[in-house]
Design a protein around this nucleic acid. Structure first.
Lengths: 374, 374
DNA sequence: TTGTACGCGTTATCAT
DNA sequence: ATGATAACGCGTACAA
């Protein structure tokens, strides 16, 4: 007998056919029809913590499953004024050199029930273009790992969209930021290198004034000046591998000789500098020249390099950024907060970190282990 | 006199104050009020190609600017059934090792007027969890650079959401894919190495059967067998740097000696293998051992490595994926298409690619330039 | 606990 | 070219 009594399954299938023929979506109203309840009851079943009888809940869920019903986030956000989306604005630079940043942020937000709408900037100047899109999509908040102007920040305030800057600061603006203390990191590196007896420094910096690479440079220069050492030779870089080799040669040309140490604004430049020093110029690193970077990107830890560098606590910073943004979204207040993390020194083996022994008995090179002087 | 005649600016500011006090958003209705037109007129002004008188358009736009009005994408998508968002599902693996993929795809979609909703998978098994979110957000289509099951693909069909798999294939399923011919790439590499006289091969593969790394392995094994060479020693890898060193040692242990060449399923493993061979085992590469990888990641091109590898045409593949998905979205049809690209061989310097000369006059090592043998 | 009725902000249709 | 009106699919007072 195929003519059995009409079950929920039958009516659901019949309705599905109708819906398909009408070329429309399955709605909560359809589910209500199949479950024999009102549309609002269906709505409540999908709202965590709503009061609904267990039996009703079961019937509704069964109908929803049969119909492949999923609530429509667009309709929901229209009424709740919450899209549960955040925008992540990131430069291609940042994405290429810190791929784990994106992964961490994405994980952190997903864990907090927020989806990530991604905007990548080919150049920092593209911010205008993407911001217009950001407003359209009614995101609950924005993480910007890109340079924004004061005007941009002002627009966030006008539109009351919470903003957290990641590894970017803006002077004279009250804005949420999560950063690593790049200035201090630069100082720390200069201190360590100076303590080991380096006197003539070269620095390969960035070209963008507000970038971490340039804050590190400022820190290093500041400290070098404090210590009464000769001012370092500073050349700009583009953050890429090639800039390391070009920077090294430019520094040597300007100085007329090989400096004691080269501080690079990023690891990738440091690795380029290192390879050029060793394989193009035949220099012994760290015997004749110390090279240090920043970021502790993955290749810096590889056997061929083992770079002296400083690591940013990316996972913690990503978590902090997510926390901060979600807190601002939840509280609706306009308070701002700055969370600053410290970089961790990675010794590596491309910078000499102990003073060269002055007794002629010990050769200047081949200094494999720390020499106890005393 | 501060009591001047009421201008558009005045009424706009007054309305803005009201809106702020009511804590609601600026709507097209507000703009209509200020501009002295109907709400529909405002809507038309924001729709490209709609018929609206120039004067009206100007008045509306002025009012919109004064009020900081931006159309609400959620409300629009509700009625148009187009969210103009696509979901990008990507494993952390893929993101970490091919950061340019994300950047390329993001650029490509933004250029086509689509926003990218990002979902990263810690493990491939997390697909279930994120798909539920994907349906909620009514994305127009999905790019998946992750492993999906047949059931997952079936759900895309049921929900009529266009899907494009990126560098993943699914047997027995009609699904849009954009891939690189990894099998052929594996074969090509084996051919080149065999032509140079390599006989004993080791392969560091992947652990996931459907991954590019394993397709490459299949291709290489297939070709090695065709050439009548001894079957290669195959060990699994985790795609990371460490797997390269571990794989190398495992292969040597299994073989009882150093093979002629090691083919790695990915560059990062190849670089790990290379460093271990040179710095841990003191082997001459490519003198005693050839090492080759796949992908041409950035570090593989650095001076310290100069890895023999194969490059996927990522920008073209990303553009193809975007094209394919947008075409499926626009046409509404359920046709499927597979677009396959070819990898490009990068000679590098970690694999010997010419036969070793047999005449004793020419030393086996120090073979700097191709030797003309005739 | 459940149902009714309304509104979120837009686009689409239709008449003018 | 323009305006009135009806959806789109949902959450939420409020009443029952």
């Amino acid at each position: 007998m195929t003519k059995s009594k009409p079950t929920v399954e039958h009516s659901a299938n019949a309705l599905k056919a109708v819906i398909a023929s009408e070329n429309r979506r399955v709605t909560s109203y359809d589910v209500a029809l199949v479950a024999g309840v009102s549309q609002s009851a269906v709505s409540r079943c999908f709202k965590p913590g709503a009061s609904v009888a267990p039996a009703t809940h079961a019937r509704v869920m069964k109908a929803a499953t049969l119909l492949d019903y999923i609530p429509n986030a667009a309709a929901r956000s229209l009424i709740t004024r919450r899209s549960n989306m955040i925008a992540l604005i990131i430069t291609n630079q940042a994405n290429l050199y810190y791929p784990e940043l994106l992964a961490e942020l994405s994980q952190q937000f997903n864990a907090r029930g927020k989806r990530v709408l991604l905007f990548t900037l080919e150049r920092e100047a593209d911010a205008d273009r993407v911001l217009a899109d950001v407003w359209q999509y009614q995101v609950d908040g924005v993480i910007a790992a890109a340079r924004l102007s004061d005007e941009h920040v002002a627009e966030f305030e006008r539109r009351r969209v919470p903003l957290v800057l990641f590894n970017r600061t803006l002077r004279d603006s009250a804005v949420n930021t999560v950063t690593c203390d790049h200035l201090e990191a630069g100082r720390m590196l200069a201190t360590r290198l100076a303590a080991a007896g380096h006197r003539r420094f070269g620095i390969i910096a960035g070209h963008d004034d507000a970038s971490p690479a340039n804050e590190r440079r400022h820190g290093a220069c500041e400290r070098i000046a404090e210590l009464g050492l000769p001012p370092p030779v500073v050349v700009p870089g583009e953050y890429d591998y090639r800039s390391g080799a070009l920077g090294l040669k430019a520094i040597i040309a300007r100085l007329g000789s090989v400096p004691d140490a080269i501080i690079c604004g990023s690891d990738v430049m440091a690795l380029g500098c290192l390879d050029a020093a060793r394989h193009e110029l035949g220099l012994d690193v760290p015997g004749q020249l110390s090279v240090a970077g920043f970021d502790a990107v993955e290749p810096s830890n590889w056997t061929s390099y083992n770079l002296t560098t400083l690591r940013q606590p990316m996972p913690k910073m990503a978590a902090a950024a997510a926390d901060l943004l979600c807190a601002r979204i939840a509280s609706h207040d306009t308070e701002t907060e700055k969370r600053v993390f410290n970089a961790q020194f990675i010794e590596g083996a491309t910078a000499r970190l102990t003073p060269v022994a002055v007794t002629p008995a010990i050769p200047a090179t081949g200094l494999r282990q720390p020499v106890a002087i005393m």
